[in-house]
């Protein structure tokens, strides 16, 4: 067991503890019905969280995902329902627009050296504003394709339902893991987050990787918007406000280092399922308001950031600041020797 897996282990332990607790209270947590629902209900933001994992590993941040999801929903509803476009053609076009949007933010971040926080904050306003411009009211989508997709369900013996959305979530998860660990793009993302200056000198294509990361994230946010559109069968410009913050929380609770360079896609998945489990538990319990999920998320976030700090600075196991963990402070660059 390598120490760099420690945050991932923590994430998994938290999930197990939550799930076992929920199971002890409600036996239905042992059924495929709950598992199927967990995957279905959390699919759309889980997909976005997987994209965000790459962004944060690269040392960046993307605040625009909630808005992109909303825009996607409104755009699809408008095109398919009002303009009679073919859903698949609409999705393809929307994915292209989303990817280009992300790539553009990446270009601005890289070439104009503007902090990702600011660039994607403008992306947030831009995409949200655009979706209001398209429609201020919720548009219902009625199309045979949408009916077909919602009928596309595998039913478990205990009547648990494995839906299309759940399948998409798992596919994105597998592709995400592959991308992160078995491709040069993925390793370059880690390198970029670990030490951007060194990455440049080591020959990492920094521009291409940065732009690629934001393009990938917006692609997945758009895809998440499509998955949400399919399950809601509507488009609504007020949806997913502030979702980016939930997504970022899940990435951090999943053990990804906020400063970049380290993290796991699977960790994000487990964190999404953890938060989903708490949500489901609160719904089933009924005595507590569902807003408790926010409080729990807050606590978990705090605990994980604290853990990262501890690992990064004190124990020298994990993090970016690690060149300093081994090197006594006097050897840090910055104070010039005479």
């Amino acid at each position: 067991m390598k120490s760099r897996f420690l945050p991932l282990l923590m994430t998994f332990l938290v999930f197990s503890a939550m799930y076992l607790f929920a199971y002890s209270q409600f036996n239905s947590f042992g059924s495929m019905r709950i598992v199927g629902n967990l995957l279905r209900d959390n699919a759309f933001w889980g997909i976005a969280a997987i994209g965000m994992t790459f962004v944060i590993i690269s040392g960046g941040i993307d605040l625009s995902v909630g808005s992109v999801i909303a825009f996607t929903g409104v755009f699809c509803a408008l095109m398919i329902d009002r303009n009679g476009w073919d859903p698949l053609a609409t999705f393809t076009l929307m994915l292209c627009i989303g990817t280009a949007f992300g790539a553009l933010m990446g270009v601005v971040i890289h070439y104009f050296k503007i902090p990702a926080f600011i660039v994607t904050l403008s992306g947030l306003f831009l995409a949200r504003g655009m979706s209001y411009v398209l429609s201020t009211e919720s548009i219902r989508i009625e199309h045979p394709f949408y009916e077909q997709i919602s009928d596309l369900v595998y039913v478990f013996p205990d009547r648990g339902r494995f839906t299309f959305a759940a399948a998409m979530f798992l596919i994105v998860l597998v592709v995400g893991i592959f991308l992160a660990h078995y491709t040069r793009f993925g390793r370059n993302v880690y390198a970029l987050g670990g030490n951007p200056d060194a990455a440049l000198l080591l020959g990492v294509p920094v521009a291409r990787t940065t732009i690629g990361v934001y393009a990938l994230n917006s692609f997945l946010a758009t895809f998440a918007g499509i998955v949400l559109s399919l399950s809601k069968q509507s488009g609504d410009s007020t949806i997913a406000v502030g979702l980016e913050l939930d997504v970022i929380s899940a990435v951090v609770i999943g053990g990804t280092l906020l400063t970049g360079g380290a993290g796991y896609v699977i960790g994000t998945f487990i964190a999404v399922m953890t938060l989903g489990t708490i949500q489901t538990y609160l719904t089933l319990d009924g005595s507590l308001t569902p807003w408790w999920i926010k409080i729990v998320t807050g606590f978990l976030l705090f605990a994980f950031v604290g853990l990262q700090r501890l690992l990064g600075s004190g124990w020298g196991i994990f993090g970016v600041k690690d060149s300093s963990a081994n090197v006594p402070p006097e050897r840090q660059p910055g104070i010039q020797s005479s």
Binding site: R184, G194, N195, G261, A262, P333
Partner: peptide
């Protein structure tokens, strides 16, 4: 260089083969 220009968060092997794995 004096300040090592490698990636602290990647493994030794990954640092040696980064970009040409």
């Amino acid at each position: 260089y004096q300040e090592v220009n490698l990636i602290p968060t990647l493994s030794v092997a990954e640092n040696i083969f980064l970009g040409r794995q």
